[in-house]
Measured scan of single mutants.
Amino acid sequence: EPLWIRPDAPSRCTWQLGRPASESPHHHTAPAKSPKILPDILKKIGDTPMVRINKIGKKFGLKCELLAKCEFFNAGGSVKDRISLRMIEDAERDGTLKPGDTIIEPTSGNTGIGLALAAAVRGYRCIIVMPEKMSSEKVDVLRALGAEIVRTPTNARFDSPESHVGVAWRLKNEIPNSHILDQYRNASNPLAHYDTTADEILQQCDGKLDMLVASVGTGGTITGIARKLKEKCPGCRIIGVDPEGSILAEPEELNQTEQTTYEVEGIGYDFIPTVLDRTVVDKWFKSNDEEAFTFARMLIAQEGLLCGGSAGSTVAVAVKAAQELQEGQRCVVILPDSVRNYMTKFLSDRWMLQKGFLKEEDLTEKKPWWWHLRVQELGLSAPLTVLPTITCGHTIEILREKGFDQAPVVDEAGVILGMVTLGNMLSSLLAGKVQPSDQVGKVIYKQFKQIRLTDTLGRLSHILEMDHFALVVHEQIQYHSTGKSSQRQMVFGVVTAIDLLNFVAAQERDQK
């Protein structure tokens, strides 16, 4: 057995438009009618409502009807409940999964919650491996369901041993009777949507819809739904939504950006999952974080739909894509998950301010006199920076000697690579993860907040409520011999709460 199987392995699926269902090699399930009293909570997966979006479509000038398939009504709160249950049931049916076995899954959280929910009911041990950027709410729900959680670096490539995929496979090879159901490759993922989600949409719309818009992560949702719609409703256009920084969209030119990270969760990847059939997507749109969270908040405030950030991405694209539809036509959007997962993220004004998705003037509360002053007023001194090749031991000596707790790590040209902190280095040394002679590049981390000289002290204040420091950066445009230009970030300084307090105190003292 291989040590790991690539999540982007070539698909062996034989589905073709027009091929009889009787030739399918898979076990198919028909939607079942729910009894009045459910035998367990797993029976509350599927049969989610279709809700008309009344205000947002009109606000953006849509002539067509805009409908939302509300997947956050599933038992675990997301569309991923469907595939989690289906993968477990299919693994039980073919004898792969037996009582007492362990389920391991690399996930952005929602599939993990679905699997942990099913594992709690069915009696399996469950280990979820997820990147650090995923919300604390997801972690809390997983723990409450009895799952064990392993976190991995957000910026690790999918084929790196440190990625959530790599760590999951390492655990599988170490733990007896453990299984990775593997949402990236498992046919049960798109089949769950082909058999149930798509049929529900067709039934709820009486077979009449002209466009379907869905955000894409593993691709199982859009693949399964689109294949069924292509068979039953061939005139329906399928629109895929991919965040900026991901590479799922086609044509490839759409993916060209210097951005590699994004805040919206559960969609987009740096590889093409095996289950994603991009041939059934008629057109791709890219979405960005700001519009995703703005539209998610709009869905909550104006439509009462308590959905997550990827739902915002989907609707932001839908109001663009559906401009081509006329009166009497219908566009369906998939709202994948609930706001429950993001209470401390985009639902929080403070978080939105820190990330730059909300401006101070958007909030009406009274601010102190210094709130709208610029960061450049602080008069920061030149920063202490270190090269990635310097040793951890030497870096600790320098920081202690100069009285700093942290320093930016830059390359020879001064471009920011990340940050090192005294606390992080000492804990890594004590844990045996690094040696004093190791290069400081081994303990770089990139989960820090950046701020510009033109940003306000109010925004800085919000950042420092949650973080010990902020890195002050400025952009530099560099022209190359080819005539092309590129933008790079340079370090201007490091600012802490002490710097802000000293500035405010000094100004008030001078005024007296």
Rank of each mutant, 00 (worst) to 15 (best):
I238P: 00
G240A: 08
E244M: 03
G245T: 04
I247D: 09
I247N: 07
L248V: 02
A249M: 04
E250K: 15
E250Q: 15
P251F: 02
P251C: 07
E252S: 11
E252A: 14
E252M: 13
E253A: 11
E253I: 14
L254V: 07
N255Y: 08
Q256P: 04
T257L: 14
T257I: 10
E258Q: 15
T260K: 10
T260F: 13
T261K: 11
T261I: 06
Y262V: 05
V264T: 07
E265Y: 01
G266H: 00
I267P: 08
G268P: 00
Y269A: 01
Y269Q: 02
Y269T: 04
D270T: 05
F271V: 03
I272S: 08
I272K: 07
T274R: 11
T274Y: 00
V275C: 08
V275H: 00
D277T: 05
R278C: 02
T279V: 12
T279R: 15
V280S: 13
V280G: 15
V281K: 01
V281T: 10
D282E: 13
K283S: 10
W284K: 00
W284H: 00
F285M: 02
S287Y: 04
N288Y: 13
E290T: 11
E291I: 08
A292L: 05
F293G: 00
T294V: 14
T294W: 14
F295L: 11
F295E: 10
A296K: 02
R297L: 08
M298R: 11
M298E: 10
I300K: 03
I300N: 01
A301V: 14
Q302P: 03
Q302C: 15
E303T: 13
E303S: 08
G304W: 03
G304D: 03
L305P: 02
L305I: 11
L306R: 01
L306V: 04
G308S: 00
G309E: 05
S310P: 00
A311L: 06
A311F: 06
S313L: 04
T314E: 02
T314D: 02
V315C: 11
A318N: 01
A318C: 09
V319P: 04
A321V: 15
A322F: 04
E324L: 06
E324P: 12
L325Y: 02
E327V: 06
G328R: 15
Q329V: 04
Q329K: 11
R330K: 11
C331A: 11
C331I: 09
V332R: 00
V333K: 01
V333A: 13
I334R: 02
I334G: 02
P336D: 05
P336T: 06
D337L: 03
D337Q: 04
S338E: 06
S338G: 09
V339F: 07
R340L: 05
R340G: 05
N341W: 00
M343G: 03
K345F: 00
L347I: 09
S348V: 15
M352G: 00
L353C: 14
Q354I: 03
L358I: 01
L358M: 13
E360L: 12
E361S: 14
E361D: 13
E361Q: 13
E361V: 13
D362L: 11
L363C: 13
E365T: 13
E365Q: 13
K366S: 12
K367I: 13
P368A: 08
W369G: 09
W370C: 05
W371Y: 11
H372E: 12
H372S: 10
L373G: 11
R374G: 12
R374M: 11
Q376W: 08
Q376V: 06
Q376I: 04
E377R: 04
L378F: 15
G379R: 10
L380H: 08
A382D: 03
A382F: 13
L384V: 14
L384W: 06
V386W: 04
L387P: 13
L387K: 12
P388N: 09
P388V: 12
P388L: 14
P388M: 07
I390E: 08
I390Q: 12
G393P: 10
G393M: 14
T395Q: 08
I396P: 08
I396K: 04
I396Q: 08
E397N: 12
I398P: 03
L399M: 12
R400L: 13
R400E: 09
E401F: 13
K402E: 12
K402V: 15
K402I: 08
K402W: 02
F404I: 12
F404V: 08
D405A: 14
Q406K: 06
Q406W: 04
A407G: 15
P408V: 05
P408C: 06
V409L: 04
V409P: 04
V410H: 13
E412N: 08
E412R: 06
E412F: 10
A413C: 14
G414M: 01
G414E: 13
V415S: 12
V415Y: 15
I416S: 15
G418H: 14
M419S: 14
M419Y: 13
M419T: 15
V420I: 15
V420T: 13
T421F: 01
T421V: 12
L422I: 14
G423M: 02
M425H: 12
M425K: 12
S427E: 01
L429D: 13
L430R: 14
A431I: 09
G432L: 15
K433C: 15
K433E: 14
Q435I: 15
Q435K: 15
P436C: 15
D438R: 10
D438Q: 09
Q439T: 12
Q439K: 10
G441W: 07
G441D: 14
Y445K: 08
Y445N: 09
Y445H: 12
Y445L: 14
K446C: 15
K446L: 14
K446D: 07
K446N: 15
K449M: 09
Q450K: 14
I451D: 06
I451S: 03
I451G: 08
R452G: 12
R452P: 01
L453T: 09
L453D: 03
L453E: 10
T454R: 09
D455C: 14
T456R: 10
L457N: 00
L457W: 00
R459G: 10
L460M: 11
H462I: 13
I463V: 15
L464M: 11
E465N: 11
E465Q: 15
M466Y: 13
M466P: 11
H468L: 15
F469V: 09
F469G: 14
A470L: 15
A470W: 01
A470H: 07
A470C: 04
A470V: 15
V473C: 08
V473Q: 13
V473R: 10
V473S: 14
H474E: 11
E475D: 13
E475I: 09
I477C: 08
Q478T: 14
Y479G: 12
H480E: 09
H480N: 12
T482V: 11
G483I: 07
K484L: 14
S485P: 14
S485L: 11
S486V: 10
S486H: 09
R488C: 04
Q489D: 04
M490H: 14
M490C: 12
M490G: 14
M490E: 12
V491I: 14
F492K: 12
V495Q: 08
V495I: 15
T496A: 15
T496S: 15
A497I: 12
A497Y: 09
I498L: 13
D499L: 01
L500M: 14
L500Q: 08
L500F: 14
L500Y: 09
L500T: 09
F503Q: 01
A506Q: 10
Q507R: 15
E508Q: 14
R509M: 14
D510C: 14
Q511V: 10
K512Y: 02
K512I: 04
K512M: 11
